[in-house]
């Protein structure tokens, strides 16, 4: 099976989530091939998991003040600050290969592609169930999966760099006096590619390495990665979904 490889560059959070869903819908209708997309975020954005309350998790006033978007995802999991990172999303018909029926196994398979990609950068890492990838015991990637319309959508991030002070200025913490300790704890638990390699890693370098990891893993199930483009109708549908859902308070503040 041919898997389309997309690089859509940086977009606003609502559009990024809209495109992810538009690709899923297009694949489910048989209009687009299964796809792997890499993208970034401009402006920076906080996303919260489907079951989280935006108002409980995010300081929306601080986000507005700093020009940072806040969007609720269609996938579960926790709040993520998307700043200096590379994000991927993969959409596959459910039921075979990396989209096998066993959800934890499919996390393991897709995260395995990322682990292989990180190895191409010289980073040793491992899948850490349920949904993380760690290196030296510290989290370098978080991932989230949903299944809709007969398809799997998994998206996730790999940290290129990390600004925990900024991140914690945007997230609500139980008590202001705990913020310093939370930042110290997070420094011990989270790591970026820059920290691991002692040099900055750009989006392009990371994209190339991660795509190579996916290509190798997909080849194992007879699938081939092939560069392609987002179709005009996918982009148009993504914009509509971004506007009607991911930019709306009714969606973002629903829980």
């Amino acid at each position: 099976m041919r898997i389309r490889l997309l690089d859509t560059g940086p977009s606003a959070g609502a559009l990024n989530m809209g495109i992810d869903e538009a690709v899923l819908l297009s694949v489910s209708r048989g209009e687009s091939p299964p796809s792997l997309r890499f993208y970034g975020w401009k402006p920076s954005c906080i996303t919260v998991g489907y079951f989280q309350s935006m108002q409980e998790e995010v300081d929306l006033g601080a986000c507005r003040h700093r020009g940072i978007d806040a969007v609720r995802r269609i996938t579960g999991g926790g709040a993520v600050f998307h700043q200096a990172e590379i994000t991927y999303s993969i959409v596959l018909p459910a039921g075979r290969g990396l989209a096998c029926d066993d959800i934890l196994e499919s996390y393991r398979g897709i995260c395995g592609a990322l682990v292989l990609g990180l190895a191409r950068l010289g980073i040793e890492s491992a899948f850490s169930p349920i949904n993380d990838i760690t290196s030296g015991g510290r989290k370098v990637s978080g991932n989230a999966q949903t299944r809709k319309q007969g398809c799997l959508l998994q998206h996730g991030t790999v940290l290129l760099d990390l600004d925990l002070d900024l991140m914690f200025s945007l997230l609500k913490v139980p008590a202001e006096k705990l913020k310093g300790r939370l930042i110290e704890d997070a420094k011990a638990r989270v790591v970026s590619l820059r920290d691991l390699l002692g040099r900055p890693v750009g989006f392009e370098e990371a994209r190339s390495a991660l795509a190579s990891g996916f290509a190798a893993v997909l080849a194992g199930s007879g699938d081939e990665l092939e560069e392609g483009e987002l179709s005009g109708s996918e982009l148009a549908e993504g914009r509509i979904i971004a506007s009607e859902r991911f930019s709306s308070l009714a969606w973002n503040l629903r829980r």
Partner: peptide
Amino acid sequence: VRVGGDFFAHPE
């Protein structure tokens, strides 16, 4: 009743 958090549930 609202049950929120950073867990995953399938199907949502």
